[in-house]
Each structure stands twice: as structure tokens, then as C-alpha cells.
Design a protein around this nucleic acid. Structure first.
Lengths: 135, 135
DNA sequence: TGGTAAATGATAATCATTATCAAGAAAACT
DNA sequence: AGTTTTCTTGATAATGATTATCATTTACCA
């Protein structure tokens, strides 16, 4: 029996690029990161594989920020902070402190809707941008 | 002194269209809703005014669903449920039950980031779509 | 009445994303 | 090893939502 390889070299590289950063990058960022090492990489391939990952539950979308979708390979439920000035996306670990998991049950009972996931996002001005304004 | 009108007739109509529905519509929806009554309305005007409203804090974005931005004239903080099957966006009133406002303070202390707003969104399958699948 | 600034319609441009399609690599099966 | 089938990719074109442009109109106020 042959060994079935699940990931092509490029698919693997795209996933690793995503998993190795906390910057919640765009497709373009992943492409530019890998392009020097993989000169024959195509932007379409990055988009295609990000879709594959999303559908396979390996990666999730943080939403569209400034017109570009942002991705996260950390599948554990956690909130994000998005700076509306510089568009940086930060993880907020320990999000369980702010969120009541009874919500899923409540929505099912009250609306008959089956919740599969949720996202909690904070918007504001990050530390760095706040300091810049003070200058 | 003349009465200063803050809203042009079209701006007013666009806001009213948004405020009169709970469907969290797209720009296109607003345009199609108003076009019969205001035949010389332009789609660009709808986009322009939605931007004006967002900047003025009269309207907020629910995010990009299926490639189109969805808007909400209800500025009170409340969670949303988005059906990943039909892309319907529902309000979930009473969201305070699920969310701890200490989060704002926590993020300021821990990250030096000043939170101005947040959004809590649930994803799943709505009641109607669940029934359709059973058929 | 005239002047300035805001708002708009029509249209073109932008730009992130998706579709297409032919070619290449891997796997499966003989 | 050869053959067939399926998966993956690069290059490129197409899509489609949103934004910019610009000439024109409208509101406002002296």
C-alpha cells in the first residue's frame, strides 16, 4: 500500500506560513512571504489552498479588514482586536472570560438556529497607534 | 435664520430604508428598494451615503457576508446570527447575557489598546435552512 | 442675484477574488 | 512499466463589489 500524501509541497508551505505567524495575514501576504523560496508559486494557488483549508476546518477567516480577508491557523476559539487605524489584528487569549457558552443553547431554543461557531471582535486603537497620535 | 437641513431627500431616504428593516441589507438592496420611488437614484449615491453614515456613527457594518457588506441602523450593541447556508443576518437581542463588559478594561490594561466597540457574531444554520435539509 | 460648498448621476477605474483551461505530477490499477 | 484517472498548479481572463472622477445640479447664505 502506498503512502498517501495529503499535502502537496506548496499546500504544505502555505499552511506553514500561516501557522507560523500571529499576524493574521492576507492571501497576498502569504504569497509574498513564500515567493522568494518558491519562485513558481502562483497567487491563485494561495487563494485556492486557503479555501481548501477553510472548508477542511484547518484555518478560519478573521473577516474582511480593509477590503482583504484575514486568516488564522489557530482554530481555538479566541477573540480578536482589530486596530481601526493600522488594521493590525491581535489575538486576545483567554476569551472565555468574556463569553458565555450558554449562548449556543439559548439561540437554539429561542430561534431554532444551530450555532456552529462564533466570533468576538474588538475594534479600537492599538497601543502603537495611540502613541503616534500623541507626538 | 433658515432651518439647516442636515439630510438631503435622498440621504434621508437611504437612512430610512435602512432603519425600517431588520434584514441588515446590502447597498444593492437599499438601491433596489428605493429605485421605484426615486427613479433618478444612483447606486453610487447609496454607497456614498452609507459611508457618510458609518463615519458619522449613524450606521454600523455587520461585516462582509458572501462578498457584500451588510449594514445595520440599530446602533445598540447586540450580537448577530449569520446563517452560512442562506446568508440571512438576524439580531440576537439581549446580548448582554453573553458578554462581559470588563473586556474593554482588560484589553486596555493588558495590551494598552483602547477598545471603542465590539461585535459578537454567531455562525450556523438557521431554522428555515435546517428544515429544508430535512425534506 | 450671485457665489461657494455640498450632493448627485453617470461612468470609468480599482482591486481582491474566482473561474477557466491547458499542462504537470501523483496515485491507482493493471 | 504502461495506462488511466484524479489532483494540483501557473498563467490568465473574468467577475463583481466598491470607489474615484468629473461635470452638473442643488442647497444655502450674503
Amino acid at each position: 500500500m502506498n503512502v498517501k500524501r495529503n499535502f502537496s509541497a506548496k499546500r504544505e508551505a502555505i499552511y506553514e506560513a500561516l501557522a507560523s505567524t500571529k499576524s493574521h495575514p492576507t492571501a497576498e501576504w502569504v504569497y509574498n512571504k513564500l515567493k522568494p523560496d518558491i519562485p513558481d508559486l502562483s497567487l491563485g494557488t494561495v487563494y485556492r489552498n486557503l479555501t481548501v483549508f477553510k472548508e477542511g476546518g484547518l484555518v478560519k477567516s478573521v473577516g474582511v479588514v480593509n477590503g482583504q480577508e484575514r486568516f488564522d491557523a489557530d482554530m481555538s476559539p479566541h477573540p480578536h482586536f482589530i486596530c481601526t487605524s493600522c488594521c493590525k489584528v491581535m489575538d486576545i487569549p483567554g476569551g472565555k472570560l468574556f463569553f458565555d457558552m450558554n449562548a449556543y443553547d439559548h439561540i437554539l431554543k429561542e430561534y431554532g438556529a444551530r450555532v456552529k461557531s462564533h466570533s468576538l471582535t474588538f475594534y479600537g486603537i492599538c497601543h502603537e497607534c495611540a502613541e503616534k497620535k500623541d507626538e
